[in-house]
Design a binder for these strands. Structure first.
Lengths: 245, 245
DNA sequence: CGCAATTTTGATTTTACTCAACTCAAGTGG
DNA sequence: CCACTTGAGTTGAGTAAAATCAAAATTGCG
């Protein structure tokens, strides 16, 4: 028995059968949540570690003026911070986007895994480093990329991540994100995002419509985005293989 | 014997004399770098862990079009990622801002510390979680805060962090950051940043001139910034004590 | 079908960028 | 000591990008 979390970590650094068994056992406590359910809120005392096994979730923050900033997307196999338990309070919230199957790993269980399974620990650290790289890419996008580049860049990121865990299948890639959510991720208004999507459609690079993303010209989309897959640390290097160049 | 790194970690979770001795030994390999020296560049294979003991440094990325995005500031006591060694390549560069005393910890030494000194490991994890919170705050600033709020927010952050390690002393707080660097941190142009600083001076909240920051009205500055010190995880909660409210 | 949410479009205003010039302070070397 | 250079900071005018406000079209779904 296995799951998306195990598969993802196993892709990072090959796990032993022992590791896999331990991870599977640790993520045995699973629950199905409805869409738009807060798993934990800003200000809450952190509890167990959350692992998304199926569906999408996001980290976000609400500002005093009511606006929202989405900080990251969690796809199947992704988890929240491993050591959140050390903190007194959450500085952001985590919410499901779609109905989602989520496993929780208690703090002692987590500690146990870390001390007894160095192979898992290593894979977890790698995973965390990649998440940090993604955050840096978001900062870079928001600070120094034009809006069309930002949108293209996020699409490249999401496509590669999805492809990497095998959920893109053939061209119409299902992105369960409303334009409002995308706008809240990219620091722009929904209206402007909508116009940028139209512009991108015009370039022939990609089409995002009714929740499905079609990348018509990966090379051009990459070029528009100024996308450097290295920031995902060569994990996902082969994702576009066969499509581009 | 001790250093800023030890002091910072000791502030997070009290270390035993043993821990302190081990950390001091681990950071014994120190070197003084000139200002504007790259400790490591994007694309390099990661080597040892860097720890800034004195002076300032920053993480940054250069985009294809030549523009720069600063991703984080490292102040005395701050370090780069603990597990960078796991990665094939750096996805960003790290550069000194001022002349800086930097310790390097080799990968085996790091591993040794992690396995033999759980107290240190815990403090290091906390430190990393706080850095992540800071990144999330930057994303939030860039995405959803007006430029004057962004500037005010960064000043609050830097002031609190500096205060927390005891380098603010009395009011004129020395910020060794040019307006160009600040602009590259905040995703704006130097010209616009300059106008915003003027505006902030006009509000009476703060004055940044010739590398020294004077916070004239902490309450107002906090209000402009929409600053929630919680994102630094209550570590730095007492910093403004005696000044505000 | 009909409601509600999301997406799309248009017109206008605001914000920030660009380009260019000018100031100022701190060196440098004759 | 004074011209000269240099880099950072400042200011102004014009332009471009994105936000705002408002409304219409489309879609999903009970």
């Amino acid at each position: 028995m296995s799951n998306r979390f195990v598969e993802k970590l196993n892709g990072f650094s090959r796990l032993s059968p022992n590791d896999i068994a331990a991870l599977t056992a640790a993520t045995a406590d699973q629950r199905l949540y409805t869409a738009r359910h807060d798993l934990i809120r800003e200000g809450d005392r952190p509890g167990p570690v959350f692992v998304v096994l199926d569906g999408w979730a996001c980290r976000y923050k609400i500002l005093p003026n009511g606006s929202r900033q989405i900080l990251a997307y969690l796809m199947p196999g992704d988890s929240c911070d491993l050591h959140v338990g050390l903190l007194a309070e959450m500085d952001h919230s985590i919410q499901t986007i779609t109905p989602a199957l989520v496993a929780t790993i208690s703090r002692p269980e987590m500690d146990d895994v870390f001390t007894r399974y160095p192979g898992i620990a290593k894979a977890l650290y790698l995973s965390q480093l990649i998440d940090e790289g993604t955050m840096r890419a978001w900062i870079t996008s928001m600070g120094r990329r034009a809006s069309i580049e930002r949108v293209a860049h996020l699409m490249c990121e999401l496509y590669l991540r999805a492809h990497n865990i095998g959920i893109t299948l053939e061209p119409p890639f299902a992105l369960p994100l409303s334009q409002t959510m995308l706008a809240d991720s990219l620091g722009m208004t929904p209206v402007h995002l909508n116009r940028v999507l139209k512009e991108l459609r015009g370039t022939g690079a990609m089409t995002l419509q009714r929740g499905s993303l079609i990348i018509e010209d990966p090379v051009q989309l990459n070029r528009i985005a100024g996308f450097d897959e290295n920031y995902l640390h060569r994990r996902l290097r082969t994702a576009f293989a066969g499509q581009d160049r």
